[in-house]
Every structure is written in structure tokens, then in C-alpha cells.
Design a protein around this nucleic acid. Structure first.
Lengths: 257, 257
DNA sequence: CATCACTCCTTATGGTGTAAAGTGCCGACT
DNA sequence: AGTCGGCACTTTACACCATAAGGAGTGATG
């Protein structure tokens, strides 16, 4: 299951996102919570235990309230997710120096964006099909666009390049995040997991090398193992991140000439 | 929420995947279901209504049984998902002609893989962090590897290229699938959705052009609209799919020289 | 014919989002 | 000063979910 953004009531969520509505003084008890507090609590829950365990009850409990208390501030879980999404994006750097070559700037951007998604892996499970239209989402687009513009590409091609860059970085982050959370969920390291399965596989498919020659070829010439104790899958994903990015940037450079 | 593969009991799932266990003749009532029937029903449910509504109950009902009846054949939902995943992959072509240039073969592969994921968008929500180790998963790797090998890249670089290609295609498919399901979920076309939001955005952020100059620049020189009635987001995603792929293949070609 | 392994069912538990209604607070108006 | 009305927050309830536990019936084998 994946969560779709942009599903809240726009008349409510747009002002909330841009904080353009000042709550007037009104009769009744003073609110003891606020949208900001709730969004912060929800992000904390998602960071710590993942989107799957992000329930209205969990967020409420973290604030010493019941789940229903949140509905005064936020119309539902969908709206809360939009707010979380845009809020988290505020963490990203909003500009990169323009006295370095665009290529270096894009590598820095990719690294930052990768690290950001790994700090908040739940972001990867929020679909970007419908933009949230929040200030930080636009700012993040603004930031890459400023770099890509320096390639000299016209707007159309720049849009394509940006979308490809986003996909690439999100895909790579997804790999690493998945590797981590799979390890956490099963309590098995990549190696444990593999060692527990490979004998079974060999038993079930004795003629593996004959049946899958190309796969066998791919697995010849293995990587040297990582020096530190980084889990293999994660290490591999990170390593290939930069080589893949280089391919992509080569392509962009080629297009812009 | 996302689903992780490779979490079932390997001692059970590997033989199930490779169908290497023949059920012996036993006393008791004859089974009226089978793993195959269940997996087919589950795939049908997922294709029709999405992974979010794929419940054990729904699969059971489609077969005229209760949810619990399935547990005799399949240990749980996680195991069922692994089986669905590997089964679906059987649809992919298992080879591409080697008398065409590798570049054309990769474009054909990408198109097929894209179309495949759009036929079964729920596949995109099954994480590939831990491989399922099923026959069709290996076959799909085998198929790309056979093409990529013809670039002349050594195994290590080929692995990187393959992983980048997979990410790219899955990412692009994700965009299109998300656009579709967002439209279905909200009952709004992209245009409806945008038209309902843009006045609100303009009201909330009157100084948009000054505040986000690069974004404004990006949106100058808009694409000509699609001739047919394809929804905009989907049409845009499909169009940029091939230009992005071209960038990527340029990069691979560059690397292999 | 009795046994016994097996399929399938009913029931129950603890989780989810959120609708509906109840409680008590407190600023604003008379 | 007293009352009123609207709001924050709670409790309760409902319809779902996966699946554990245990019971009922089936049908080939001894």
C-alpha cells in the first residue's frame, strides 16, 4: 500500500501549507495543541518506527492525547501526510554555489537529497503523482532548476532532466532504505539472509549455472568486500549510486552540447 | 506502507516457488483449491482493485471460500505476495533477438518492462530489497543481462548498468501508475485537479513568480498538448520516458567504449 | 469399520481510520 | 454578573484487517 498526496480538501490544505490563515480569537477553551506540534510528532513517529506504524493513535499518544483529538487540527490522515511531506522538505539546502561547475553542484545535490531521504525513508512511500503544492516542495524544485538551468538546456529538456534526476535519486534511496528496513524487519543481516537461502536454492535448482548462464556471468568478478561493517546490500547500492549518477550526468552533458 | 518480499520461511517458499515438491497421496478430504488457483485469484484482485484492497478475505471470497481456507496452502499474506510476484514475472519476454544492436534491444526491453508494470501496477509496491529467488525473477535478470553483455561492459559495470536500468524503468512506471491511480482515487482528472487548486495557490501565494523564478522559467515553453485524450500527467511521463532512457543509454555507450 | 491426517469453518484478539455524540471550558454578549 | 454558544477533547462504536486457536466433517488406508 502506498499513500497518495494531494488528496486532501484543497481549500483547507493550501492555506494550511502556506500558513496564510491566522486563527481568530474565539470563545471556548484554548487549544493546547497546534498543527505544528502534531506534524512534528508525526514526523518523529515516522522516522523512528516507519510509516506502517504511523497511526493517528500513535501520534496522539506521543502528545498525550487520544487519536480523535488530532481531528480538530487536521482533517484526516491524508492531510497530515501532506503536511509532513512538505514540512520535511524544509530540511533540504535551498541553494548551491554557482561558482562551481553545474556537474559538481548536481552531484552535491544528489548526495544531499539521498541523505535526506535516508533520514526520512517514509518520504519514499508518499507518491509524488499529485504535488502537494506546499512552499517547500516548490523550493526543492527551484533549487535543482537553478542548477540545471546552468547546463544551457532549454526549459523542456531541463524538465526532463530534472524528472530523471529525481527518479534516479529516489530509486537509489529506495534501494538503500529497503535494504535497511528489510534487515530490521527480519532481524537478519544480508549475509544471514543469503546464507539461510542459498543452500535451499542450490537444492531446488541444481542446474542453476546451466539454466542461468548470464546471471552466473554477472556474478563472476565480485566486488571486493567493504572495509567497514556496512551491510553488503547497502554498501553496494551506495557505491553504484555514484557510478550510475555519472552515467546520467554524462547523458545530460551530451544533450546540452 | 510497503510490502517486503523475501520474508517468508525460506524452507517453505523456495520449494513452493520452484514447484519442486510433489504433494504425495494422503488420507483426508481432497483439496479443492491449490496454490496456483490462489495465486491467480490474488493477482486478479490486485490487478483489478490494487494492492491496498488485496485482503485474504477478498482472495478467499473470489474463490468461494473464507480467508482462513487459504492458510492451508499459503502460510500468510507475505508468502502469497512472494508467489504473486514471481508468477507475474513469467509474463515478460524471456529473450530479445541478438541480431539487432544492443541499444535497440534495450529500448524494446524497457518498453516491454514498462508495459508489464503498468499491467500489474501493484508490483511496484513490492520492494525488491530482498530478492524472492524465484525462477521468473532469475529469468528476468537473465534476459537483461544477455543484452547488456553485448555492450562489452565487464561484469561489474554491467551489474551497475542493469541496476540503473531497472530503477529507471520502475521509476517511470511508478509515475504513470501513480498518475492513473491518483486520478482513479480522487475521481478527478489531472486537469480538474489542477484547476481546482491553482486559484487557491494564487490566492495564497500572490508573489509566486518572484519567489520561484526558476520554477516559473521551467514552466515557460510548455509542451504542446497531446493529440489524443491521454491524461496530461501520464502523457508527459510517457513522453519523457524515452528521452530519459536515451540519456541513460548514451551514458552506457560512453562507458563501454 | 475404525483411524487419522487433512481441509475448511467459526470464533476471537488486537490492530486500523474515523463517524457520532457527550463533557466541560471559557470568551463574548446581554 | 450571568448566561449562552462554540470549541477542545473524550468516549464509544463501527467496519475493516491478519491471523491464532480449536472444532467439524471427509475420505483413503489399515
Amino acid at each position: 500500500m502506498v499513500v497518495y498526496a494531494g488528496q486532501g480538501d484543497p481549500a483547507r490544505s493550501v492555506p494550511l501549507l502556506w500558513r496564510s490563515a491566522e486563527p481568530p480569537e474565539r470563545p471556548g477553551p484554548r487549544p493546547t495543541l497546534s498543527v505544528d506540534l502534531i506534524v512534528d510528532a508525526a514526523i518523529a513517529v515516522a522516522d523512528e518506527t516507519g510509516l506502517a506504524t504511523l497511526s493517528m493513535r500513535a501520534v496522539g499518544e506521543r502528545l498525550g492525547r487520544t487519536a480523535m483529538a488530532l481531528y480538530t487540527y487536521v482533517h484526516g490522515k491524508a492531510e497530515l501526510l501532506e503536511l509532513m511531506y512538505d514540512r520535511a522538505l524544509a530540511e533540504l539546502p535551498s541553494s548551491y554555489p554557482d561558482d562551481v561547475p553545474w556537474r559538481d553542484a548536481l552531484v552535491a545535490w544528489a548526495d544531499d537529497t539521498m541523505a535526506f531521504h535516508l533520514r526520512h525513508p517514509w518520504l519514499l512511500h508518499i507518491s509524488r503523482a499529485r504535488p502537494v503544492l506546499g512552499p517547500n516542495e516548490f523550493q526543492s524544485l527551484e533549487t535543482v532548476a537553478a542548477i540545471v538551468r546552468r547546463t544551457g538546456l532549454p526549459p523542456r529538456a531541463a524538465r526532463g532532466a530534472i524528472s530523471t534526476l529525481f527518479h534516479y535519486v529516489r530509486g537509489a534511496a529506495q534501494s538503500v532504505a529497503d535494504a535497511r528496513s528489510a534487515a530490521a524487519a527480519t532481524g537478519q543481516s544480508d549475509e544471514d539472509w543469503w546464507y539461510s537461502r542459498s543452500p535451499l536454492l542450490e537444492a531446488a535448482v541444481p542446474d542453476f549455472a546451466a539454466r542461468f548462464p548470464m546471471t552466473t556471468w554477472l556474478e563472476s568478478d565480485p566486488e571486493p568486500p567493504p572495509e567497514d561493517r556496512t551491510p553488503y546490500l547497502e554498501w553496494d547500492a551506495r557505491r553504484s549510486f555514484h557510478t550510475g549518477l555519472a552515467i546520467l550526468l554524462d547523458g545530460i552533458a551530451l544533450q546540452s552540447r
